[in-house]
Design a binder for these strands. Structure first.
Length: 312
DNA sequence: AAGAAACCCAACCGCGGAACT
DNA sequence: GAGTTCCGCGGTTGGGTTTCT
């Protein structure tokens, strides 16, 4: 199949990246953009395959990455979006500013899966596991979710912050770039004036935290950037790929196709949504609507406890 | 203190599909 | 239209770290 010939070439290093390699790659991409990934190692002076360079940049070197452990809000967002989209890590990651699909996948496999299981929930379906129906309440959870997220609502009720964020109208700014700060997605150099020689602090400090011009009030605590307003920081694609500036009109068709593809794939994941709204878009979908679609019939019942019903 | 087991996460692999020739 | 190249995604692996015995 693919084969990735670049990877089969001799003299291609594999395994962990050294700080020197990181610096080479970082310097090259922040200066020239990545262009064709397959040619990056050659021009950057790296003995790596293009694929490896791409992965390193996306998962580690990109300046807009958020470092550190996941907050309870982020974990809750992952759970909520995963419930609807399934293992679409890249799409889930779009709803978590500064997080990669790899990170989301890792936190899911290492932590959230166990947490859900300990609550008696099937991580794949988010339904109650029958054998756990009378025991889940006794199980302590290693990975804390928000204190407000009680067991009794873990199946369907969405974190209110998240729900509200999802239902904001397009164009309603959650946060905006200060007047003197160019929109980040349009900035050809996302290092935001960070000196290339100042590499010692990189990459363990997030660019947001280290950029004094961006006030802390810009940080959306729910971790969701949804807006397409031209002045907003995070648009539909939270992780817009960093590449050399594209000439006007260079790739309009591809973008349209991608948008359509995303729409179709997401609609396909949930036929309920598809039947109701054919213009469904993952970045702006209304979780409250989804919630009501799934939940309303159940919630009108007067359940004494979760033990009284099963989702399967 | 030392070895074993469990955990975490960076990196790799293989596939599907889009873009290119 | 067919073949090739490239990119992006999800699944998996392996090694370093932490916790347990």
């Amino acid at each position: 199949m693919d084969g990735h010939r670049c990877c089969t070439k001799q003299n291609v290093k594999r395994g962990l990246w050294s700080p020197e390699e990181d610096e080479k790659l970082f310097t090259y991409i922040t200066t020239y953009g990545h262009g064709k990934w397959s040619s990056v190692p050659k021009f950057a002076g790296l003995h790596r395959c293009g694929k490896s360079c791409r992965l390193r940049w996306i998962n580690y070197l990109r300046p807009d990455l958020k470092r550190g452990s996941f907050t309870s809000e982020e974990k809750q967002t992952i759970i909520d979006v995963h419930r609807i989209l399934g293992n679409k890590w890249a799409q889930i990651a779009k709803h978590l500013r500064g997080r990669t699909d790899n990170e989301v996948k890792n936190i899911w496999n290492s932590c959230i899966k166990k947490m859900l299981f300990s609550q008696g929930l099937d991580p794949n379906t988010h339904n109650l596991i029958p054998s756990h129906q009378r025991a889940y309440n006794d199980v302590a959870c290693k990975c804390n979710v928000s204190p407000n997220h009680e067991l009794s609502n873990s199946v369907f009720t969405l974190n209110s912050q998240i729900t509200n964020a999802y239902t904001l109208e397009m164009g309603t700014p959650i946060f905006a770039v200060p007047d003197n700060q160019p929109p980040l997605l349009q900035n050809p150099n996302p290092v935001w004036n960070q000196s290339l020689t100042d590499f010692t602090s990189f990459p363990h400090v997030s660019s947001i935290e280290s950029t004094p011009n961006i006030s802390s009030s810009l940080v959306n605590l729910s971790g969701i950037g949804l807006l397409n307003h031209e002045n907003c920081v995070w648009g539909d694609s939270t992780f817009a790929p960093f590449e050399a500036p594209i000439l006007e009109g260079e790739r309009p068709m591809r973008q349209e196709v991608l948008q359509e593809k995303e729409k179709v794939s997401e609609m396909g994941t949930n036929k309920v949504i598809q039947n109701v709204d054919t213009s469904f878009d993952s970045s702006s979908f209304d979780l409250r609507f989804v919630e009501s679609t799934f939940v309303s019939d159940f919630m009108h019942h007067d359940f004494i406890s979760m033990d009284d019903f099963a989702w399967n």
